[in-house]
Amino acid sequence: MASPQQSARSGSDGDPRYANLDERKRKRMISNRESARRSRAKKQNRLDELLGQINQLQNDNNTIMRKIDGATHMFVGAASQNNVLRAQLTELTDRLHSLNSVLHIAQEVSGLAMDIPEVPDTLLEPWKLPCPTHPITASFNLNMF
C-alpha cells in the first residue's frame, strides 16, 4: 500500500496520471487566494479613498456654509441699513415739502417774491439720479469668498 505522501504526490486515487492535475489544482487555489487577497486590499484602499473624499467634501461644504452665513448676515445688515436710510429720505423729503409749503404761505402773506426751490425729483426717485462723476468707494472684503 502507498504511503500518504505518495498518494498525495500521485493523485487522490494513487494514479500518477492525476498528480499533475492535483498540482495544478493546488497552484490554482493558491493563485485564487492571492487574487482574492489583492481584491480585498484594493477594495479596502478604495473605501479608504472614498471615506477621505467624504471628509474633504464635508469640510468644504461646512466652509461654504459658513461663507453663505456670513454673506447672508452682511446682506441682512445692508438691507436693514437701506431701510433706515429710505425712512430717513422719506422723512427729510416730507420736511422739505412742509418747509416749502411754509415758504409759499409766507410769500403769499408778505407779498414778497421769494426764490423757493422745488423738491427735486431725484430726492423722490433716487434710482433716477444721474451717474456721479466720481467713483463711489466702498469697503468690502473681497477675500471673504
Score class of each variant (00 low, 15 high):
residue 26 R to Q: 12
residue 56 Q to V: 09
residue 2 A to G: 13
residue 70 G to S: 15
residue 65 M to F: 09
residue 28 R to F: 12
residue 74 M to C: 08
residue 125 E to F: 12
residue 97 H to Q: 03
residue 33 R to N: 15
residue 65 M to N: 08
residue 140 F to G: 03
residue 63 T to E: 13
residue 79 A to P: 01
residue 32 N to I: 08
residue 93 T to D: 04
residue 99 L to T: 12
residue 45 N to W: 02
residue 67 K to T: 13
residue 128 K to D: 00
residue 119 V to N: 00
residue 108 E to R: 02
residue 14 G to L: 07
residue 102 V to R: 07
residue 134 H to N: 12
residue 125 E to C: 00
residue 63 T to D: 11
residue 15 D to G: 02
residue 135 P to H: 09
residue 66 R to H: 09
residue 61 N to W: 07
residue 40 R to Q: 05
residue 3 S to L: 10
residue 3 S to K: 05
residue 3 S to V: 01
residue 27 K to G: 13
residue 144 M to L: 12
residue 56 Q to F: 02
residue 83 N to C: 01
residue 22 D to F: 04
residue 27 K to P: 07
residue 128 K to H: 04
residue 92 L to S: 00
residue 25 K to Q: 15
residue 132 P to R: 01
residue 51 L to Y: 10
residue 41 A to V: 04
residue 58 Q to A: 11
residue 32 N to S: 09
residue 76 V to K: 08
residue 83 N to D: 10
residue 101 S to P: 04
residue 102 V to T: 13
residue 44 Q to T: 03
residue 37 R to D: 06
residue 48 D to T: 06
residue 5 Q to C: 07
residue 2 A to M: 12
residue 96 L to A: 07
residue 56 Q to S: 11
residue 106 A to M: 14
residue 144 M to F: 10
residue 83 N to V: 00
residue 141 N to E: 11
residue 40 R to L: 00
residue 86 R to A: 03
residue 95 R to A: 12
residue 9 R to P: 01
residue 55 N to H: 14
residue 120 P to D: 01
residue 103 L to F: 10
residue 96 L to K: 02
residue 49 E to C: 01
residue 34 E to K: 07
residue 74 M to Y: 01
residue 70 G to L: 10
residue 17 R to V: 14
residue 15 D to Y: 08
residue 5 Q to R: 06
residue 1 M to A: 15
residue 104 H to A: 12
residue 98 S to V: 12
residue 12 S to P: 04
residue 68 I to Y: 02
residue 101 S to I: 15
residue 10 S to N: 14
residue 102 V to K: 03
residue 36 A to T: 06
residue 67 K to M: 11
residue 18 Y to M: 07
residue 127 W to E: 15
residue 96 L to Q: 00
residue 143 N to P: 05
residue 81 Q to V: 08
residue 5 Q to T: 02
residue 58 Q to C: 12
residue 139 S to F: 15
residue 83 N to M: 11
residue 81 Q to L: 10
residue 39 S to K: 03
residue 69 D to S: 09
residue 29 M to P: 03
